[in-house]
Amino acid sequence: MILERGISLEFLKSFILGVKSTLAVHLFRAKVGHSLFWVSAGFLLLVAAVVVSVSFKNQWNYKTLKPRGQAGFNFKNSIEMIEAGSMALGHNAGVSAVCSAVSGASSGLLIESGFPVFTKNVVFSVLLGFLLPLWCLTFAVEGLGSEREGKTLFWLFSKPVPRSSIYVGKFLAILPWVIIWSLGGFFVLAVCAGDSGIFAFKLFWQPIALASITYASVFFFMGACLPRASLIALAYAFVVETLLGSMPGSLKQLSVAFYARCIMFQKSSDLGVVLEQGGGYGDFSQTMAICFMLGIALMFLVAGIFFFGKIELRGQR
């Protein structure tokens, strides 16, 4: 392959023209309605239905949950015990007052605990660990992957614009779909969960958006440069993001979801809510995690531009 030697003004003009024209042609013309899209939509509906049923039963709180390592009593029982104890010690005003204060504060906490329960059980595990990679994959892999599979790459390669501009233009064309689908799905789940969910959405929409952009870059690269890209992307989503991302130790740092969780962990810690003990999410600051995610996105973008420029169209009959 002959690389562009240096960046001349002419190349820059052609690059910008290529990005603009690719964007103009392909923006909002993403392949919607393919089977992956309907499966993703089905998953969203399924999880939304579960979230709605939990919300209907008003279960987004710690009332029925048991403290770690304790069998028998749940948190609600514990508070009732404190209240009963406080009544039994009614003759000692000071102790009784302390017990009342503790039980009152704990009750308030239980009532307001929907946010951590929703975040831990839905956002951290199901959304970040399973749904988000699949939603991003749905559009990102199809960006150039559908052109490869449909053997229509020729129509792009025959244009007098640099291939890098085609790559970047196509990436920018699918990015809105990825972000809208990811944030939209998160918003639907948040609304289904009620106030706890909406609070979680307001707090976490930025790391979710950033994770979507990173996933889009990774999966777009796979779609553009690898054969059987959808299969490889799915394998990555299930093995690296879902499996490794939930493992103890430092293996989880291989997943993009880990850095999103770090940002969420920091954000909720700032509000005094510790989402998960251990797990290493506190080891990365928000800035570091953002840099990591942007770095991964940029790395795959550059790699994609490089390898996409080397593709030769063979045997396209």
């Binding site: 279960q59 949950l65 749940n74 595990s125």
Partner: peptide, 8 residues
């Protein structure tokens, strides 16, 4: 999540 954690 529903049965083991949220006790539905």
């Amino acid at each position: 999540i529903m049965i083991d954690r949220l006790r539905l």
